[in-house]
């Protein structure tokens, strides 16, 4: 047994330093040179202020913005740290709703959201991704259908022509990679930034 202790300790420490310190630090160093933007979180600045990350969704509630998908993330309750409160798009505590297919809470939530969206735009069918919470609670995207569904509301709130807003959605729609990989999608934050910069006229 004793004669195994030396190799056990030496190999363990040697490989731990190589894989646990040398490797991640080397990758961090190379990434900082080759891909500094991505390595720091694909942050977006406006007027010198960080407004978010291109990869992380954020909470939109005003009519003048496109809204992303429901988010189930939470944060500690400031009044009682043993409890949590709803905090949509909390990018320091990613999570999904974890509600199952026969959950009454889920059925009620979806029904309420669908009813609300139907009053906003009775003309179109409600897209499924607009009433289902994402896995991370931070989904930066929505489907093109979900964006088009919200065009009448956004156009009205901003006094823009619907056709102009629809065209803006079209230019922000990303197709499948090479025509087969992934799903068509719209980045909500980038679309809203484009609106703020005067897009959609």
């Amino acid at each position: 047994m004793l004669k195994h202790i030396r190799p056990a300790l030496t190999v363990l420490i040697g490989l731990t330093l190589i894989t646990g310190l040398l490797y991640p630090l080397a990758i961090t160093g190379i990434a900082g040179v080759l891909f500094p933007e991505q390595a720091n979180g694909s942050l977006i600045e406006r007027n010198g202020q960080i407004v978010g990350s291109a990869l992380i969704g954020q909470n939109f509630t005003q009519d003048r913005y496109f809204h992303g998908r429901p988010s189930a993330t939470t944060a500690p309750d400031p009044k009682d740290s043993t409890k949590t409160i709803d905090a949509p798009y909390n990018a320091a505590n990613s999570m999904g709703s974890n509600l199952g297919p026969t959950s009454k809470a889920l059925a009620d939530r979806i029904k309420a959201d669908v009813d609300k969206l139907k009053t906003e735009n009775p003309a179109q069918p409600v897209p499924v991704d607009l009433v289902t919470a994402s896995g991370s609670g931070l989904d930066p995207n929505m489907s093109p259908e979900a964006a088009l569904f919200q065009v009448p509301r956004v156009a009205k709130a901003r006094g823009l022509p619907e056709d102009g807003v629809r065209a803006l959605v079209a230019t922000h729609t990303e197709a499948r990679l090479m025509g087969w990989l992934g799903e068509p999608r719209v980045n909500v934050l980038r679309l809203n930034l484009a609106l703020d910069q005067g897009g959609g006229r």
């Binding site: 961090t28 942050l43 990350s53 809203n192």
Partner: peptide, 29 residues
């Protein structure tokens, strides 16, 4: 390196505080 090129963070820096378009604070891990 491929993953970073595609957008994955690799930094020892602290969590980032952003101010969202609607003016709320978002801490990004």
């Amino acid at each position: 390196l491929f993953l970073i090129w595609q957008g994955m963070p690799q930094t020892l820096g602290a969590y980032v505080d952003a101010t969202t378009l609607e003016g709320a604070k978002q801490t990004i891990a």
